[in-house]
Each structure stands twice: as structure tokens, then as C-alpha cells.
Design a protein around this nucleic acid. Structure first.
Lengths: 340, 340
DNA sequence: TTGTACGCGTTATCAC
DNA sequence: GTGATAACGCGTACAA
């Protein structure tokens, strides 16, 4: 008998019906002490564990949450994940991760997984809807987006307040005395990046910085895009005194590009990032940045998802968390100021 | 009708029995052209997708592989994962990730997942058996271990040849002229670490280095353990001229500790790591190390697992891949040699 | 070529 | 307090 024991094996051994076994497990108070004991004994002997699949099939709902991530190596991912997991586990849910690699086929596969009821809810780390059959995509289970809002959808988003964070970053640069600032990493499709850009603009407007002193460059948030931004800027007439980067990866690229040209940070150029990835502390000088409250995001996102599961009628809400500025070594006053 | 369409909805619409629908999907050649077309049309209209859960329950086998990882942020993990995924997908399997955080409760949860047939196979990234019910642990599905062999078990291991790698690293140090070398990161429980240590010993023996010139320190493979190793060594009389670290994290810690004491690498001390994590290139000087052939490991591991699934009678085999030495900037000849 | 009916392991609704 | 039994959605002998 190498097959896992079923509820029937237990029933036979305890000499009761399978109904009684099920009751003994889920509503112990409704079964007589003595029978309950017999059942428990039988369970111990057979090593019975309820078959989660059959259970979910019958109940039409599982206790697993699927987290969809395009890139598992994203330094933001793991700590958000831990927040998600801890909160889920506290409510008796388990967490499974699907790695989509930004690939439609893989997305479809996971979509089938959830649509067949093997997951009760979905956490999207992707910034877009999972691809796949139209029919499947329309029947998404309760879902939340973390880290990046889902473009063009009504999926509730839990994450950092990008606009407020962007504003904080820009203000830090301004208060250090910078007046000509480059924003690296504008985007037409990524909502989070757009919002950070908005915060930047708000701060610049409030400080009455003329538009020609705002150098805005596109970028996709990669290290390369940061390097590229530096190159593009050096081909222009006017250089900024500070770089505000849409995220830390971009900032790392910018620092890299600047270092390659022999410039000293922060003496000659100031750089500020966004996210506070682990890398930010290792680089020299350590990167001043805006910190993502990652585990708080995970915790809140899962909490939202779970309430959606328990009370489906309730309208889901966005949850924006204001981030903190982390001052390290990559920002100082502009060179021109100290020359005066 | 917001519920997903079932096979019965399709059958009704195509005016056939569910058996015919099932056949039309799985053995199209066994159903008449005209009926097949009607069925396909009905499928298209309803947006039907077969319920993977019911299917697995009926067939007693799913097409998902579960990957168990204690720490999703391990820089070694993601590229091994991609190797696993590509290979799995080529054979029609999907990959799901369970993050155990080295926690027994979580391990048990995932164990239940597989034991209820929701995953056909298991990939262990943990270095130990998943914890849980004895009964469950004994009924593990076909499994392979990657990255780190599973201690005290017969689960086949696919990974780097740690001993050969350890030997290569030591030989590199020796051929640079070092004769007093510290090994940081010995372990009594972790097989991979032990094997690297063995390779180290082999090389030292072959070079006839006296045991008193081998400084072996315990360590758990974390950055902290590297720092700690440096501290411990500096409290002794004799210092090594080179550090062979059980992995890159340890090496980073060692470099960190050395830098904190104002030493120059590689002029005053040489350091070599093992793994070749992304970090290794960013640090200064860039770390000379042994490279894990990560995606090859993932590919081979999944291939092994899949053959175990298809032909269960076959004896599983270990698969050791010889790693390459990656020479960067953290090793040079010992200071004493250049002083001569 | 197609349809009927059973079973996979549960839970829940009835009766007793 | 307990036991039959009907679902959940699917695949597949077996019968037609």
C-alpha cells in the first residue's frame, strides 16, 4: 500500500462511515468522544492527509494564492513576497509563485491553473494583465497588483505612493541647491514611472524651475537605460547638476556612466534613486534614494486580497503607502554653488 | 453565466455527449470531421478550458512540477530556475515555486500540495528533505536536488562538481605562489561545502602543503561568516596570504573585513570565491571565482526529473558538472614573493 | 462513430 | 450521533 491513504481507508479502519471521518475532522464537537478518538487513531495509523485537490474540486475554491512575477530576480520581489506570505499564512492560505518571464505562453499556463480553481486569488507583480485567452483573462479571480499598478485595468493596486516619492526625491535635490535636474526614466506605458515623473514635475513647478532646466529622458528602468541617459545628456549643450532616476537600477547605471567618464559623485554630480534595493548600500558612494516599504506593501496587499475573497461584494480600494527618503552619500550641493 | 464553461456546456452546445467532446480534444482522429468541427466551434464560443484540477484528480497525475526554495533571493536561484523552466516547458510541464523560508510549517504545506497530486515532481533547492509528517516525507514523488545535495538521502543530485571546483580554486591559488591558505566556510552538515573543502584538501595534499599551513574555519556561507572568519584569523599568530572561500557570499564578507582593516586586495591578500554570483563583478576588485553552470544545471536536473516521471523503474543517477575558473582581479602572487 | 456510466477523494445534505 | 448519497469536472471502459 504505497498509495496515500484516503478518507475511506480511515473510515474502514475506524469502522465508521466516511461522513463521520469528515465530521471528526471539521466539526469535532458534532461527533461522540469515543468515535472521535477511534477516528483520530485511524488517522494517525494511516498517516492520512486530506487530498487538497479533491477538496478544492468539491468546494470550488482552494486555499492557495498564486503570485505572478515576470522576474523572480527583481531585488524588490523577495521582500514583498515575504510580506505576502506571512499575511497569507496567518489566515490559513498558502502562496505559490509563477514565474512568467514576461512570456505570454507561460502566462496562459498559469491562467489555466487559476481558472481551474487551483488558486483562489492572484497577486500581480507584472504591471500588466496576464496574457492569454480573452475568455480566461475576463474571468480573473480576485486579484491585486503590487509594486507596479496594472496598466489600463481596475485591479486594485497596493504599493508605494510613487508621486509623493518622486516629489520627495526632487525636493531633496532642490533643497541641496540644485536648479538644473535631469529626470532619467520617463515612460509612456508604465504607470509607476509616470507617477514618479509627476512628483518630479510637481516639485519643480513648486520651486518655479523653468521647463528648460528640466531634462527629461525616456528609460525602461534598467541599468543600461541609466548609462544611456548619461551618454545622451553629454551630447547636449547643457548638463544637469543632478540626476533624479526613476529607480535604483537606473541610478546605478547613471553612476556607472559618470564614473566611466571620470566624474566624482557627489562632488561633480548628484544622483538620487528610487526603491532602495540592497545594491544601493554596496555601491560607492552609497546611493541616496526613496525606500520602498516592501514588506508593508506585501502585507497590505495580501490583506486586501483576503478581504476581497471573504467579502466579494465590497469595492476594492487602492492603497498607497508614503515612502521615506533615505539619505546616503550620492547627493551634495552643486559644484557651481560651492565655487561661489 | 459567469462561471467557467465545463465540458458539459460544450457538449450541450455541440449537441453531442461529453465523451465525444473529450475525444475531440485528446484523440481528434477518432471523431468524425463534422462533429469535430461542431465541437471546436462550441469550444470557441464557450471559451472552454479543461479544468486542470478535475483532470489531475481523475488521471492521478498533474503536469506541474514544484520547485522548493528556502530563499528566493539567493542569486544562484533565478538562473537555475530558468534552466528548469525551459526544459519543463519543452515537455509540456509547468513549474510552480514554493518559498519555504526554511520553515517547517511552510514545508509541510507544500508537501501536502504535492502529496495530493497537484504536482507530479519535486525539485529541491534546499539541501535537506522537506520537513513534515513522516508519512508524507516517505511518499515523496519523483524528486531531484539541485545546487546542493540533499543530506542523508537518496535523492539524485544534479549540480556542480564541488570537489573538482574546490580543487580548481585551490590550485589557482597555489599556482600563484601561495603556500599558506585559509579555507573559510567548513561545515559539518552541508554536503556541498564539505565537498569543496575536500577539493581544497586534495589540492593542498598534492602540493605537499603542511597541515599547519592550512587554516580551516567553519562558516555557514553568509557574508557575515566571511567577516567573522577574518576577525578570527587576525586573532591568531599566523595569517594566510590567501583566502579560499566556500562561496562568493563568504568571499564578499572576507573582502569586506579586509577592506575594513585597510588592507589592499589582491596586493596584500588574495581572495577566491565559488559560485560566480552577479555581485562578483561589481565589487572592487572583481572577484576571481569558480562559476556555477547554472542554467545547465537547471536544464539537466529537469531532464533527469522528467525521465524519472516517464520511466519510474530506471535508477536515478547523479549528474556532476565540472565548473570553470573565472579569473578576475582578486588573486595575485603573495606579498612575500614579490618582496624577494 | 458515438453515448452511458463509473470512479478519482472530498464535502454537504439528507435521512435515520 | 451517524450513515447513505449526491455532487464537483473530467477521462475512459464498455455498450450501442
Amino acid at each position: 500500500m504505497s498509495n496515500p491513504a484516503t478518507i475511506e481507508d480511515v473510515a474502514r479502519l475506524a469502522d465508521v462511515s466516511i461522513a463521520t471521518v469528515s465530521r471528526a475532522i471539521h466539526t469535532p464537537e458534532k461527533v461522540a468522544k469515543t468515535t472521535r478518538q477511534r477516528v483520530n487513531q485511524a488517522i494517525a495509523i494511516t498517516g492520512y492527509t486530506t487530498n487538497a485537490m479533491a477538496r478544492s474540486l468539491r468546494m470550488g475554491r482552494s486555499n492557495m494564492i498564486l503570485v505572478l512575477a515576470p522576474d523572480i530576480a527583481d531585488p524588490n520581489f523577495s521582500s514583498i513576497l515575504i510580506g505576502l506570505e506571512n499575511e497569507a499564512r496567518a489566515s490559513g492560505y498558502g502562496v505559490l509563485i509563477g514565474h512568467t518571464q514576461n512570456d505570454a505562453e507561460r502566462g496562459l499556463e498559469y491562467l489555466k491553473f487559476v481558472s481551474s480553481g487551483q488558486a483562489a486569488g492572484l497577486v500581480l507583480f507584472t504591471g500588466h494583465q496576464p496574457f492569454g485567452h480573452q475568455a480566461l483573462a475576463e474571468r480573473l479571480p480576485p486579484s491585486v497588483a503590487v509594486f507596479e499598478p496594472v496598466f489600463d485595468s481596475k485591479i486594485p493596486y497596493v504599493g508605494v505612493d510613487d508621486k509623493a516619492g518622486g516629489r520627495k526625491a526632487a525636493e531633496h535635490l532642490l533643497s541641496a541647491g540644485h536648479r538644473r535636474i535631469a529626470f532619467i526614466g520617463d515612460s509612456k506605458t508604465r504607470l509607476g514611472q509616470q507617477r514618479r515623473r509627476q512628483g518630479f514635475d510637481d516639485a519643480m513647478n513648486a520651486a518655479r524651475i523653468a521647463p528648460e532646466n528640466r531634462l527629461v529622458l525616456d528609460g525602461d528602468g534598467t541599468i543600461e537605460s541609466g548609462r544611456l541617459g548619461v551618454e545622451q545628456l553629454f551630447m547636449r549643450d547643457t548638463l544637469p547638476t543632478a540626476f533624479m532616476c526613476v529607480n535604483d537600477a537606473t541610478a546605478l547605471g547613471v553612476m556607472n556612466g559618470l564614473a566611466a567618464r571620470g566624474y566624482d559623485i557627489p562632488r561633480e554630480f548628484s544622483v538620487i534613486g528610487f526603491d532602495d534595493v540592497p545594491q544601493a548600500t554596496y555601491v560607492k558612494p552609497a546611493l541616496t534614494t526613496i525606500r520602498q516599504p516592501r514588506s508593508a506593501i506585501g502585507k497590505q496587499a495580501m490583506a486586501s486580497l483576503l478581504t476581497m475573497l471573504e467579502t466579494p461584494e465590497q469595492e476594492p480600494t487602492e492603497h498607497l503607502i508614503i515612502p521615506d527618503l533615505i539619505v546616503r552619500g550620492s547627493v551634495s550641493e552643486p559644484l557651481s554653488a560651492s565655487l561661489r
